[in-house]
Lab assay of single mutants.
Amino acid sequence: ENVVSAPMPGKVLRVLVRVGDRVRVGQGLLVLEAMKMENEIPSPRDGVVKRILVKEGEIDDTGQPLIELG
């Protein structure tokens, strides 16, 4: 899985990584606010952040691509 998608609709509060960062499975990639709760979205695998497809403050839909890993 190279693309991390939104598991729920919500607002992107914080992006915790930058392009080029090495990430490990379970590491937080970004924080979504949904139903007044903050949810940290973890990396599904080890890899390198290739692209960040959303910006802080954006509203996303379920299934929307958020981050691409390489």
Results as ranks from 00 to 15, higher is better:
1 E>F: 13
1 E>A: 13
2 N>C: 15
2 N>H: 13
2 N>F: 15
3 V>I: 14
3 V>Q: 07
3 V>W: 14
4 V>Y: 04
4 V>G: 02
4 V>F: 04
4 V>D: 02
4 V>S: 03
4 V>L: 07
5 S>A: 12
5 S>K: 14
5 S>G: 09
5 S>N: 11
6 A>E: 03
6 A>G: 04
6 A>R: 05
6 A>W: 08
6 A>P: 04
7 P>D: 06
7 P>Y: 06
7 P>Q: 07
8 M>W: 15
8 M>F: 15
8 M>S: 10
9 P>R: 14
9 P>I: 08
9 P>D: 07
9 P>T: 11
10 G>S: 06
11 K>G: 02
11 K>S: 04
12 V>D: 00
12 V>P: 01
12 V>F: 00
12 V>L: 06
13 L>W: 03
13 L>K: 10
14 R>V: 07
14 R>Q: 07
15 V>Q: 00
15 V>S: 00
16 L>T: 03
16 L>A: 01
17 V>K: 00
17 V>C: 06
17 V>F: 00
17 V>E: 01
17 V>A: 01
17 V>I: 06
17 V>W: 00
18 R>E: 10
18 R>N: 11
18 R>H: 10
18 R>T: 10
19 V>E: 10
19 V>D: 03
19 V>R: 06
20 G>K: 04
21 D>S: 06
21 D>W: 08
22 R>Q: 11
22 R>I: 13
23 V>T: 02
23 V>D: 02
23 V>H: 02
23 V>M: 00
23 V>I: 08
24 R>H: 12
24 R>G: 07
24 R>T: 12
25 V>H: 10
25 V>G: 07
25 V>E: 12
25 V>M: 13
25 V>A: 13
25 V>N: 07
26 G>L: 05
26 G>F: 05
27 Q>K: 04
27 Q>T: 07
27 Q>S: 05
27 Q>R: 03
28 G>R: 07
28 G>D: 02
29 L>F: 02
29 L>S: 00
30 L>V: 13
30 L>A: 04
30 L>M: 09
30 L>R: 00
31 V>F: 03
31 V>M: 05
31 V>W: 04
31 V>N: 01
31 V>A: 02
32 L>H: 06
32 L>Q: 05
32 L>M: 14
33 E>M: 12
34 A>E: 05
34 A>R: 09
34 A>I: 14
34 A>S: 13
35 M>E: 13
35 M>N: 15
35 M>W: 12
35 M>A: 12
37 M>S: 10
37 M>N: 09
37 M>F: 10
37 M>Y: 08
37 M>I: 13
38 E>P: 09
38 E>C: 12
39 N>M: 15
39 N>F: 15
39 N>A: 12
39 N>C: 15
39 N>H: 15
40 E>A: 08
41 I>T: 02
41 I>K: 01
41 I>Y: 03
42 P>A: 12
42 P>H: 10
42 P>Y: 12
42 P>K: 15
43 S>E: 02
43 S>W: 03
44 P>S: 05
44 P>L: 05
45 R>E: 05
45 R>Y: 13
46 D>R: 06
46 D>A: 10
46 D>C: 10
46 D>W: 07
46 D>I: 05
46 D>L: 04
47 G>N: 01
47 G>P: 01
47 G>D: 03
47 G>F: 02
47 G>W: 04
48 V>Y: 14
48 V>E: 07
49 V>S: 01
49 V>A: 01
50 K>G: 05
50 K>C: 14
51 R>E: 07
51 R>K: 12
51 R>L: 09
52 I>D: 02
52 I>M: 02
52 I>N: 00
53 L>M: 12
53 L>D: 04
53 L>F: 15
53 L>G: 02
54 V>S: 05
54 V>G: 03
54 V>W: 07
54 V>E: 01
54 V>Q: 03
54 V>A: 10
54 V>F: 08
55 K>T: 12
55 K>G: 09
55 K>D: 09
55 K>I: 11
56 E>C: 10
56 E>F: 09
57 G>Y: 05
57 G>I: 06
58 E>Y: 13
58 E>P: 10
58 E>G: 06
60 D>L: 15
60 D>C: 15
60 D>A: 15
60 D>N: 15
60 D>T: 15
60 D>P: 15
60 D>F: 15
61 D>R: 14
61 D>N: 12
61 D>K: 14
62 T>I: 14
62 T>Y: 13
62 T>W: 11
62 T>R: 12
63 G>K: 06
63 G>A: 07
63 G>V: 05
63 G>D: 09
64 Q>E: 09
65 P>L: 07
65 P>E: 06
66 L>F: 05
66 L>K: 01
66 L>P: 01
66 L>T: 02
67 I>P: 01
67 I>A: 03
67 I>G: 01
67 I>S: 01
67 I>W: 01
68 E>I: 15
69 L>Q: 02
69 L>T: 01
69 L>R: 01
69 L>A: 01
70 G>N: 11
70 G>Y: 15
70 G>F: 15
